[in-house]
Amino acid sequence: MGVSTEQWQHFAHDADMGVRGVGRTVAAAFEQAALALVAVIADPATVRGQVRVMMQCAAPDLEYLLVEWLNTIVYEMGVRNLIFGRFRVHIDGSRLTAEAWGEAVDPVRHQPAAEVKGATLTALSVALGPDGLWRAACVVDV
């Protein structure tokens, strides 16, 4: 069985955490980066999709758009006291619209380790690799 092309990864940073999403499209890479962000807090597989939230953001280029996207997720989870476990992203030029599914934070079941304070510009990159896959990455402040 082949490895799925869509995946998320963490990469090391001294005090914080690097998040990376990989996908066939920019939107898919952003969806995976969002899962990587959630995984800093808790295992996305433990999150039930009970609530749907619509989000949108815009930025001058794709890299700033990734930062805006991750910060929008941090904001929405913070003010709604939710954790998301699934995302669907649509990107049209410099605008992003998305749906996210999640539920209220359950400390016992989710075992949330740490809040994400925000997405930084460190190790920020959105690029198409020679393998034909998009990678969207940056360090998030924990």
Binding site: P60, N71, K117
Partner: peptide, 13 residues
């Protein structure tokens, strides 16, 4: 956290 994120972006741009 929100102030930091917003001004980081605005200052970079």
């Amino acid at each position: 956290h929100q102030i930091g994120a917003e001004f980081l972006r605005d200052m970079a741009v």
